Computed example of a mutant assay.
Amino acid sequence: MSDIAVLLAALAVLLSLARLSGSAVARLGQPAVIGEIACGLLIGIALSTGPDLPVQTGVTLDAIAQLGLTLFLFCVGARLAPSITDRCVKSAVVPALGAAVVPFILGALLALWLARRHAPAGTTAFVLFAAAAMSVTAFPVLARILAERGMLDDDGGQRALSAAALTDAAAWTMLAFVAASPLGETRAWSLVMIVPILAGLLAVARPRFGHWVASLSRPAATTLMVALACAGAAATDAIGLHSALGAFLAGAAIGRSAPKVDPAALVAPLGSLLVPLYFVLVGRKIDLGEFDLVLVLETVAVVVVAVAGKCGGGYLGARFAGQPPHSAAVFAALMNTRGVTELVFLSIGLGLGVIDSAFYTAMVAMALVTTAMTGPLLNLLRQPNEVH
């Protein structure tokens, strides 16, 4: 069988299995990504006991999955940017601080304890990355949960979305810093080369550019969005930062300039087709053979700290902002959603060499547990007169 035939067959099987497993889990009321990662885990076990894919096929599949990730993060940035308005920021800044600072501090303390076993690039980079990863809230999954529950238009839903946007923006900023400082040595040339990239993003973020995009036909606008996503990803990758950062920033820029065009809607169909492949490959990176007693205890500690930091910090922040106890509890449950954003974050850290595969496995388990908790927590907090 030729290489192209093997690639096409593998692509057909993996995309089909990813979609089927995601749909099966979604029927149980959980995010599809949980099923996609479980699918990848099973595929990894199957390939480890049988013939593996040819090297070239694996490389090409990774490249296609990276394109799906690029388009996905472009959509995240495009949807996140319009949510950061002055009004929403003012109402969400205090709750967001609680949902970001408390898990960041607790995550840093936990990382100091774990660094002796899981910090291949040094303690400083590991602690900063782990603390930032603890602060992440999955903006796309949160938006979907709010839409399914009819909470997108009420004050609580808008506040939660704005707080998630602020916490994720801070976490991605920290990730950019860690990516530019491998092994604790800041690469000044990377920070210098980011200047022309930011200048280009500012040009894209101007309303005049958005008006021009609105005048294009849908196929032309879609092509332009995909090109911008890939260009942003290539630019940050070329200067030594991760390509995901460039895709995210490009989406945020175009989301600010062309809110009426909805650039995410143009790119989302292609991204939603390819991104499940990325999460299947994420599942393949999980090595169950590393789960000894020590790693199990560390995973439990990671989950406990993650839930305590997000739920506790989110609740305290909401209460300080004047929200009643029930609204604060709902806000805290929503902030605990990590989902796909956390998984992308962790994959970048593993690729950068900031964390090892064992810590990656523990954090993926945490992301799945905290995401799966959101639905049951919201059902538990649902008031008797609330319709779902």
Rank of each mutant, 00 (worst) to 15 (best):
D3F: 11
L7H: 06
L7E: 08
A12C: 12
L14P: 09
G22F: 12
A26T: 12
G35D: 14
I43C: 08
I43T: 08
A46P: 07
S48P: 04
T57Y: 02
V59E: 15
L69M: 15
T70Y: 09
A78H: 06
V89I: 06
A92W: 02
G98Q: 04
A100C: 11
F104M: 13
G107A: 08
L110T: 09
T123N: 14
A130H: 12
A130V: 15
R144L: 09
L146R: 05
G150V: 04
D154K: 05
D155S: 15
G156F: 03
G157H: 13
A171W: 08
A179W: 09
A188W: 13
A188K: 08
S190I: 10
V192L: 10
V195Q: 07
A199K: 02
L201H: 05
A203Q: 10
A214V: 00
L216S: 06
P219W: 10
L241I: 11
L245M: 07
A250N: 05
A252W: 00
G255T: 02
G255K: 00
G255E: 05
D262I: 02
P269T: 06
L273V: 14
P276N: 09
I286G: 00
G289E: 04
D292G: 07
L293F: 04
T299P: 01
H326P: 15
H326K: 11
F331N: 06
F331V: 02
T337M: 08
L343D: 13
G349R: 01
L350A: 01
D356M: 03
A362R: 00
V364S: 06
A372F: 04
P376Q: 07
L380W: 15
Q383P: 04
